[in-house]
């Protein structure tokens, strides 16, 4: 009897140990988010002790590395906005159109063939997209506009925007496809039964029903575009440039982060720390976007009681 009890106690100890391991693993996962936040936050605070926060968000001159260096990030935000806008203009119609075709029109045979192909697009490393943008798309754009007598930069916002848009297509199409397929079939039948065409049914009934999910997918794509680094590092410019012309070179938040950190600067110089200030902005914006996206998809799930998303 005694040995039995002993065994039981040992067992309890081992179980507790395992339980403890599991809890600490979960804790580390949580700490990572805070780790990212705090590691960026502390360095950013250090930066703002040296340089004005106000000028950072409203100033228009970004000139690191000189004696009288200035850190006004507005042109950088403008470039980021422009390239992201171009990317979304490409990705939204094509991603959504692909999702509608896959979920509503394609036969199971074609669906099975086409969907993995789109997933390949999602699996291509961004450095590869960047290479393609710099080597194939950018010269193509320069040549095309030269033939029209318009001068375009080899680091044009258009080239990186288009390629970034293509990169985001699968992000938008994959989630939208799931959401559209989750719209109950009874709604389609009801609309068709009233004598609506297939197109009218999709456009007026299915898409509005799936709207929260589609918006959520688009926001996810947007956040991906904002944080994308390699394409812009390789194909966009370094020069902070505030312009409405997408054929000019522009720079983005991520490009400037990379540029500030790959040099041989002192870690505690404002030049290096400016990367963390920019990183903090990026972190905050993508976090907000993600929270909105998640709450929208949760609403959709509750409305149609789906658990598969």
């Amino acid at each position: 009897m005694k040995s039995f009890e002993l065994k039981q106690r040992n067992h309890g100890l081992k179980e507790q140990l395992i339980h403890l391991c599991l809890i600490s693993a979960a804790a580390i996962s949580v700490l990572t988010t805070f780790g990212v936040l705090f590691s960026i936050l502390f360095e950013a605070i250090e930066f703002f002790q040296m340089r004005s926060f106000w000028y950072f968000i409203t100033g228009t001159e970004w000139s690191p590395g000189v004696d009288n260096s200035k850190f006004g990030a507005l042109p950088i935000f403008a470039g980021t906005f422009m390239i992201t806008f171009i990317a979304m203009a490409v990705a939204l119609p094509i991603g959504l159109g692909s999702a509608i075709f896959l979920s509503e029109y394609a036969s199971p045979f074609w669906r099975d063939k086409l969907k993995p192909l789109l997933e390949i697009l999602a699996g291509i490393p961004t450095v590869v997209y960047g290479f393609f943008a710099a080597i194939t798309v950018a010269p193509g754009i320069v040549n095309f506009f030269a033939s029209l007598g318009i001068q375009a930069s080899f680091n044009s916002a258009l080239a990186s925007g288009i390629v970034m848009g293509i990169m985001i297509i699968p992000v938008i199409s994959s989630l939208s496809d799931d959401v559209i397929r989750a719209v109950p079939d009874s709604l389609r039948k009801a609309s068709l039964g009233l004598g609506m065409t297939e197109g009218e049914t999709i456009f007026n009934i299915v898409l509005p029903s799936a709207l929260p999910g589609i918006i959520s997918a688009s926001i996810l794509g947007l956040s991906k575009a904002l944080g994308e680094t390699m394409i812009v590092v390789m194909a966009a410019g370094l020069r902070p440039n505030m312009t409405w012309n997408p054929l000019e070179d522009m720079t983005t938040v991520t490009v400037r982060i990379v540029d500030a950190l790959v040099g041989d600067n002192e870690f505690n110089s404002p030049d290096t720390l400016s990367a963390f200030a920019l990183g903090l902005v990026l972190f905050a914006v993508t976090l907000v976007l993600n929270v909105i996206s998640l709450s929208l998809i949760r609403k959709f799930k509750e409305k149609y009681k789906v658990n598969t998303l």
Partner: peptide, 13 residues
């Protein structure tokens, strides 16, 4: 949220 953080920020970390 961790899944949606841009990868470059992990480099900063």
């Amino acid at each position: 949220n961790l899944a949606a953080i841009p990868s470059i920020l992990f480099g900063l970390l």
